[in-house]
Design a protein around this nucleic acid. Structure first.
Lengths: 119, 119, 119, 119
DNA sequence: GTGGTCTAGACCACA
DNA sequence: GTGGTCTAGACCACA
């Protein structure tokens, strides 16, 4: 379900956080669904449980999951989060776009480039 | 000329590399111009010379400056680098765009958003 | 495994980079194999960890190894690198050949000389 | 007569030594000819006289020129030097060739490559 | 003066 | 344990 790319320069915990977020955004993991336990996921991925603990901590703190003590972690309701996320992404786009203008990229170049998304 | 943001999570050397690149892209630092000496810049920013050494090493290795031993560092010709930079930026756009699609952003939304550039 | 030649005029870090490259080219270090840790190698060679850090940084940046934070450094796939290496070597040959012509060496002399490879 | 390439990574003194050697090998500077004075050459190239002093010191020590106190520097007889130089170059070729074999270069590849020398 | 290399050692993030 | 960043400071080559 989750594959770690050891040649990715990002730390492992960040990769996993990212993967879970995408699965939640896309609805592969639905609100209320139980997350795998820290220990079982650590076993499955051959990682230190600390690493998974950290992943869940970040997801919880960002509102993607919630913890029920003694029972486990569950996917949260992500309604409000989508709008927050869109804003974050727009801010990122704006930042890069400012640099792109400096090297002479046009909005049309960018539009064309992103449209060819199949390739 | 260069201000370090200690609240930034990125390492100091990376921030400075970034700042110099932008100054070179924008033509604030022109090809052939002499860079501040390793030691003088270190003093000015209250940093260790090693840190500046690292910054200049990266800039040289990426083709932004060149070193004349015993004389100093100079801004290089940046002709070919613009194309490389465009590719980097496109890769960044693609990465964010992939996330943006997951939360339901359309290419038209993005286009409109970036077009209103005054704000 | 690695011996430093203190009579060599090249800096230590460069000698070690070179040695590792050769071991990787020759397949003595195979793709996926773990490199010695920064600190253990530093101890073994009686060098400062920073020096090894630099060596690994260069090897990584040139595609010979990759780093997994908190785990270690691993030998990368070197498929594409062979072609790059061939180009580098050709450039070196061209440089020396230009000098050799100046003292009257012919291509046939060179060919004969390199062919007698047993000696 | 001598042009310094400031984008060359080698130190300036080395570039000049190199240039003089070639001029002597090629016979552009003939045995007995007077070398430009340290001061005049330093002026001409806008360099520190120390740098030229160093160049002449190396050339003298390697037998390319000789110094007559109070008169100047003169090109030496280079008869014997050519053979010595050929040996040095052969050693360099052998060293690179050993590496080239490791990445699968053949003697024929090399021959062809060096033969196309016009380009 | 200029840059380059290296040591000793602290402190941090990640697993 | 692993690697990454940074300081303080020595020593060297080059101009």
């Amino acid at each position: 379900m989750i594959i770690i790319d050891y040649k990715d320069t990002r730390p492992i915990f960040e990769q996993i956080v990212e993967k879970f977020k995408v699965m939640i955004w896309k609805g592969i993991l639905k609100p209320g669904a139980q997350m795998p336990s820290v220990r079982s996921l650590a076993m499955e991925l051959s990682l230190n449980p600390n690493t998974i603990q950290k992943v869940y901590g970040i997801l919880e703190q960002q509102g993607f999951i919630y913890t029920v003590k003694g029972k486990g972690n569950y996917v949260a309701d992500t309604e409000g989060l989508v709008e927050v996320r869109k804003l974050e992404l727009k801010t990122e786009f704006r930042r890069i776009w400012n640099e792109a203008k400096d090297v002479g990229m046009t909005l049309e170049d960018l539009y064309e480039y992103l449209r060819e998304d199949g390739k």
